[in-house]
Design a protein around this nucleic acid. Structure first.
Length: 720
DNA sequence: GCTTCGCATGGAA
DNA sequence: GTTCCATGCGAAG
């Protein structure tokens, strides 16, 4: 359907794939290929929203990766060769082979550039080649980023002198490592099983620091975001099993063996590399990492990277601070992912921190996406630089780092999760993948038609762009059109279905309806009518005006409201959305609340998001409870009537109290007494120090599950 | 009572 | 259903 070329060129590739994959029979995957890539027919075929591709959950990781690329893709130098309008079957094959794991963005850049350089054969697609290869021609000469040099491969090889950086495993190098280590490295298949979140994303600057001045070659092995327990005082760093088995020495005894690891400063640490038996498997840990972690001032959420220095075969440990995110976004040109100057850092490292060119004698790649680990985050980054979406990276810059891999939320401790959510930038990560899809538009340049295996494909030379959200509507006459909201006046305008809007769109851009090409023109229909047709809330986009062109509030509000109303209750005029797994950035009632008994107490006057949500939820719960109790009373009364008529005493169902008490006892006025449900509600409402206010530190969603009696008791015990 | 060690548990993928 | 892995937890020191 779209953007075939660039996707094929840059689609997720596996780090460890070998060229043998290329030899796989294309026909084996032909059917799937065709189904996936065939341009769908129909009136929306030009829209960048084909569900058969963009909504398939099985494609998600791939798509996320693609999205990440689409978002950060620079233009200009990274375009594919204009003249190249065909797709090698084996290239597509490769893409298919590796569309599950995601590709670090930096790798994408390299791969793209290799395309641009005419390396279109297997080597250009083979990540083992395609990753970064840097060389320094002399002490004061520039390091040449392969991705920006339009030289041939031979030029590079011949020019390689002095220090070399291999940002990913080079086959020969890996083979040598096998020989040195005396045990086979992970085979290609096993490598392909390595989860993308462990793929190393190391900038060239990090590599420089790790390498020091030696003539060494660095092979990044894997990385891991520190969990709370990793960074805690236990001193145990849980290692991803496959990484441990692939890159660390084989151990047969649980006690393991001591492992020397060098940090970025050259200091050597000795950890105990061992495992625990676990569910017929092993759980690998590095013990004794606390001093090292502390010396690096790492905490949960930060990332440690493991690399190998060859030819010594040393393990070297780097790190990346998670807290660089905000600073990085504030200063997008500052190189991120730079190893902070350790205590004994030399001037080189310090200089590196001061600017991209201070310590690096070449136009080093400035990676502003290094912290962006998910497509959503990528989207956020793009949002920050909304005006220059397509030109975010100027000439001479690119991302050497990879990137966008969706991190497992549980790899970050709860506190870190909340910290990340509190982070202003992270709070902007409020766009789901499905929402992002709706914002993608084909690039303006018309696609060329290519034929692959007898099937026609639209091939775009440029990536999709972020467009303004529109809503497609079929009116009563069967006519299709779409509605878009003006950036300036927030009026909704009806547009033809094939209209492609830029992310910033105003009435003045309404070339399809000259009568309504001005913000002064009235809206064609009133908002109420519009709301009936499309799932928008009046003024929703206005809310986001000034902060972002992407209107992402709908889905979020849906989630929040669903959380408030409880599962199974949908909202009128809003799409029914099941709550996804809780992830960093999730704004649901569960995620935004501090854990029980932890965190600062909220005052009754607090108007924070948590408190406001709790209040709303409390009110809803109370209303529901009162309704339920009222209905139960009614049922009970009617039953008693029936019982009275039949003169048979029947215990009241669902009540602990004797049946006679409910009607015969006078209303209790003692708020401390344990009364019926409605009294418990009253108790709850009045137990607060401030009249008619609720306990913002209580957890109504749990209270809802408890008996009213316990509610009253707990509120009495903890009136704050 | 505190820390360390080893395993178990359960959520997430 | 299986595997991975973050973390809880009890035993031992």
């Amino acid at each position: 359907m779209c953007a075939r070329k660039s996707h094929n060129a840059m689609a997720p590739n596996h780090i460890w794939s070998s060229s043998m994959h290329m030899a796989q029979n294309v026909a084996d995957r032909k059917d799937n290929f065709v189904k996936t890539w065939r341009p769908p027919a129909g009136q929306f075929s030009s829209q960048w929203r084909q569900n058969n591709m963009w909504s398939m959950s099985t494609m998600q990781s791939d798509l996320q990766q693609r999205l990440a690329y689409e978002f950060d893709r620079p233009s200009g130098s990274e375009k594919l060769l204009p003249g190249r309008t065909f797709i090698h079957a084996h290239e597509k094959k490769f893409d298919d082979m590796h569309d599950k794991p995601t590709t670090p963005a930096g790798m994408n850049h390299i791969i793209r550039d290799r395309y641009a350089n005419g390396h279109t054969q297997h080597s250009s697609l083979d990540p083992t080649y395609a990753y970064t290869l840097y060389h320094r021609e002399g002490p004061n000469q520039s390091l040449h980023d392969h991705s920006h040099q339009h030289h041939g491969e031979n030029d590079h090889l011949s020019a390689r002198k002095g220090k070399q950086f291999y940002s990913h495993s080079v086959i020969d190098n890996d083979f040598q490592a096998q020989l040195r280590n005396g045990r086979p490295r992970m085979d290609a298949k096993a490598r392909s099983q390595l989860l993308p979140r462990y793929w190393p994303r190391i900038t060239d600057q990090e590599l420089q620091h790790l390498s020091g001045d030696s003539n060494s070659v660095i092979t990044p092995l894997f990385e891991k975001m520190l969990s709370a327990s990793d960074a805690g005082r236990i001193g145990r760093l849980v290692l991803p099993k496959k990484c441990a088995e692939a890159y660390f020495p084989a151990i047969s005894q649980a006690e393991g063996l001591p492992l020397k690891v060098q940090d970025a400063t050259g200091k050597e640490w000795v950890f105990q590399f061992r495992f625990w038996p676990n569910n017929n498997s092993r759980m690998y840990v590095l013990e004794g990492v606390t001093p090292c972690i502390q010396s690096m001032q790492l905490q949960a959420g930060d990332t440690v990277t493991f690399s190998r220095i060859d030819p010594e075969g040393k393990l070297v440990m780097g790190f990346r601070k998670a807290t660089n995110l905000s600073a990085e976004q504030d200063q997008p040109t500052k190189p991120a992912n730079v190893v902070p100057p350790p205590p004994e850092a030399n001037s080189k490292v310090s200089a590196a921190d001061s600017g991209p060119s201070a310590a690096v004698p070449r136009p080093i790649k400035v990676n502003t996406e290094i912290k962006i680990s998910s497509p959503v985050e990528q989207a956020t980054a793009s949002k920050i630089d909304k005006g220059a979406l397509a030109q975010k990276e100027g000439p001479g810059t690119s991302s050497s780092s990879p990137g966008p891999v969706k991190r497992k939320a549980t790899s970050v401790g709860p506190k870190i999760k909340r910290f990340r959510m509190d982070n202003e930038e992270s709070m902007e990560l409020k766009i789901t993948w499905e929402e992002a899809q709706e914002l993608l538009r084909p690039p303006p340049k018309a696609p060329s038609i290519v034929i692959v295996d007898g099937h026609e494909f639209e091939e775009y030379e440029e990536p999709p762009i972020l467009g303004r959200r529109t809503y497609f509507v079929t009116d009563q006459s069967g006519e299709n059109h779409q509605w878009a909201q003006c950036e300036d006046c927030s009026k909704w305008r009806k547009l033809p279905v094939d209209a492609l809007l830029p992310s910033k769109w105003t009435c003045a851009d309404n070339k399809w309806d000259p009568e309504r090409s001005s913000c002064d023109s009235a809206q064609e229909i009133n908002t109420e009518e519009l709301t009936e047709m499309i799932p928008i809330k009046p003024g929703a986009a206005k809310k986001s005006k000034g902060t972002d062109n992407i209107d992402v509030s709908d889905g979020l509000d849906t989630l929040a409201n669903l959380a408030i109303l409880g599962e199974g209750e949908s909202l009128p005029s809003q799409p029914t959305t099941r709550h996804p797994r809780h992830r960093p950035g999730c704004s649901c009632i569960v995620c935004i609340q501090p854990p029980s008994g932890k965190g600062p107490k909220h005052k009754q006057t607090c108007t924070c998001n948590v408190c406001m949500t709790v209040r709303r939820r409390f009110r809803t719960l109370m209303m529901r409870r009162e309704k339920r109790q009222q209905s139960e009373k009614d049922v009970g009364a009617s039953r008693r009537k029936e019982v009275g008529q039949s003169s048979e005493p029947v215990p009241q169902a669902g009540s602990d109290a004797p049946p006679t008490n409910t009607t015969s006892s006078p209303p209790k006025t003692d708020t401390n007494s344990e009364g019926p449900d409605d009294m418990a509600v009253d108790n709850k409402r009045t137990s607060s120090p401030i009249k008619n206010q609720i306990d913002l530190n209580s957890q109504p969603e749990r209270e809802d599950e408890h008996s009213p009696k316990s509610d009253a008791t707990r509120l009495r015990d903890n009136p704050t």
